[in-house]
Every structure is written in structure tokens, then in C-alpha cells.
């Protein structure tokens, strides 16, 4: 019973981590940079969905689309103002710039959205159902499925649409992509939009289980970064797998050892895993050239 509930919540958290981590993967693959304010994108998805749906009163599907679109715009802005000015000069200061951008956004949202957590109602997270004797919300089952679906959709989008293939071309050989008439700068900007949208989806999925507040994204962002690294930041499927592993590890450690040691054990495992496999569990080594 306990193990069923642990597995279910581990899988739903893991799917979340995986989706957010895919966001790190997308931008890293295209541009070797990541948005360290990715947690803020998670928050933005949930906050915008709440605001458009509950506060403004749009129908839910429209609110979700609107929130995703605005999150995408946020991703574009991050790339344009927090990453590009530094990456263009070969400076790593985008790391600090995106962190600072996250601080600004989280605080700005705190003053506009409000200082207290709000609940995003969902029919899927109000009445528990029984699964092998464990009570769970249907949403907990929906999240892993939705997570895998989004990851697959991303895969299909990349592998089977022209726009996706152009993005893959940029990943594999930016110079050759430019020779095909592909605008590499635009592709990088798009990858940041996609990254923010993925995180926003994760934020909307988890919000009914959790709550909506301006600082909800911070820990999710950090854990998802661990997942991205653990999976091997260049490997999308590795990252989804690592996400589930991470979520399960957290849930199982909490179930059987108590939550006091969860963070210590999980983060130690991350260090140990990277020491043994420096490119992540599923990543490939970069070829060294002289």
C-alpha cells in the first residue's frame, strides 16, 4: 500500500522534473546555455493559468493556451536580454544574469499575484480513488502519462516536422545549418521559448496537487537541473528516465527512511553518479579534439 502510493507520487514528481529538465536540455543542445530561472518558468505557467482562468475568467483551455504563449514570450525575453548579450561575447555571465532575472520575476509576481499560495482547482485532484489499496488522486496518474505524452510530442515535433528538423540541424551542425538558410539565432531564441513552455506545462500539471505561489518554482528548478545533469544534458530520453528515477528515489527514501535524509541522500547520489559517469547516466562523452 505504502509502496504503491510512493511509486505513484514518485512517478508524478519524476514526470514533472523530467519536463522541466527537458527545457534545460533543449536550450543546452542548441546553444550551450541554460536558463537558470527555469523554476520561474514553472511558476509562471501556474500563476498565469490561475490568473487567466480564475481571476480574469477565461475558459480553461483558452487560459492554458494563453499561459503557454506568455511563458513562451518570457523564454524569448530571457534569451534576448539575459543570455544573448553575454553568450555573444563568450562570457558566462548569463548564468548570473538568468538567476538575477529569476529573482526579479519571482518578486514582481509576488507583488502582482499576491503573497499567499492559492489553489488551482481540478476535478482530478479533489476525490481520491483507490489503487491497490492506496488512495491517490487521478491527477497523480495523469501527470506521468501527460509528461510522457509531452516528451513524445516534443520528440515527434523535432523528428517529424520541418521546423523540428531545422532545429535538429542547428544542434548537430550550426555552421552547416546556416548554409541551408537556417537562422541560427532565431533557432536559439525559439529553444528558449520551448524551454519555458515545457516548464510552464509542468507548473500547470503540478499546481492542482500543490498550490500556486510566486516562489513555488525554486526547488523544482534546482531538482530538475540535477535531473538534466544526471540524465546527461544532451540526451532527451535519458533525461525523462532520470526524472522518473529521481522522483522515485525521493519518494521511496521518504517512505522507508523518513524525509529528514531525503535531500542528503539524493544529492549525494547525484555526486556519486556523476563521479562514476561524468556525462550523466545516459549521456555521451564529447569528443576531445587537439
Amino acid at each position: 500500500m505504502l509502496i504503491v502510493s510512493a511509486i505513484v507520487s514518485g512517478l508524478s514528481l519524476g514526470a514533472m522534473y523530467g519536463l522541466i529538465a527537458l527545457g534545460y536540455h533543449v536550450t543546452f543542445a542548441v546553444s550551450n546555455t541554460v536558463n537558470f530561472a527555469q523554476g520561474s518558468s514553472v511558476m509562471l505557467g501556474a500563476v498565469l493559468c490561475y490568473t487567466l482562468w480564475i481571476t480574469v475568467g477565461w475558459p480553461l483551455p483558452l487560459a492554458i493556451l494563453g499561459a503557454l504563449a506568455l511563458a513562451g514570450l518570457f523564454g524569448l525575453a530571457v534569451e534576448r536580454f539575459l543570455v544573448r548579450p553575454f553568450a555573444e561575447r563568450g562570457s558566462n555571465a548569463w548564468l548570473m544574469a538568468t538567476v538575477a532575472g529569476g529573482i526579479v520575476l519571482d518578486n514582481a509576481v509576488m507583488f502582482t499575484f499576491g503573497k499567499e499560495p492559492r489553489a488551482l482547482p481540478s476535478a482530478l485532484a479533489s476525490q481520491p480513488v483507490s489503487l491497490f489499496g492506496a488512495g491517490i488522486y487521478p491527477l497523480q496518474l495523469v501527470i506521468p502519462v501527460a509528461g510522457i505524452a509531452v516528451a513524445l510530442a516534443l520528440h515527434v515535433l523535432l523528428r517529424h516536422t520541418d521546423a523540428g528538423k531545422r532545429l535538429l540541424a542547428v544542434v548537430q551542425n550550426p555552421a552547416a545549418a546556416r548554409l541551408m538558410g537556417i537562422d541560427v539565432k532565431r533557432a536559439i531564441a525559439l529553444s528558449f521559448a520551448a524551454s519555458a513552455v515545457l516548464a510552464a506545462i509542468a507548473g500547470m500539471l503540478i499546481a492542482p496537487l500543490f498550490s500556486v505561489s510566486s516562489d513555488m518554482g525554486l526547488m523544482f528548478g534546482i531538482k530538475a537541473f540535477a535531473v538534466a545533469i544526471l540524465g546527461g544534458i544532451g540526451s532527451a530520453s535519458g533525461i525523462m528516465l532520470a526524472g522518473f528515477l529521481y522522483g522515485l528515489a525521493e519518494a521511496l527514501i521518504t517512505s522507508f527512511l523518513g524525509s529528514s535524509y531525503t535531500q542528503i541522500l539524493v544529492f549525494s547520489a547525484v555526486i556519486a553518479a556523476l563521479a562514476l559517469m561524468p556525462n550523466g547516466l545516459f549521456g555521451r562523452a564529447a569528443v576531445k579534439k587537439v
Binding site: L2, A6, T254, S259
Partner: peptide
């Protein structure tokens, strides 16, 4: 005595114990 973190979404394990 069971502990949990501010960001935890599932306290079933602690409560079950």
C-alpha cells in the same frame, strides 16, 4: 515525530508510519 518540507506534495508516507 515525522518531518516534511515546505515543497512536499505527498505526506502519505509520513502519515502512514
Amino acid at each position: 515525530a515525522e518531518k516534511f518540507d515546505n515543497n512536499d506534495v505527498d505526506m502519505v508516507p509520513q502519515l502512514t508510519r
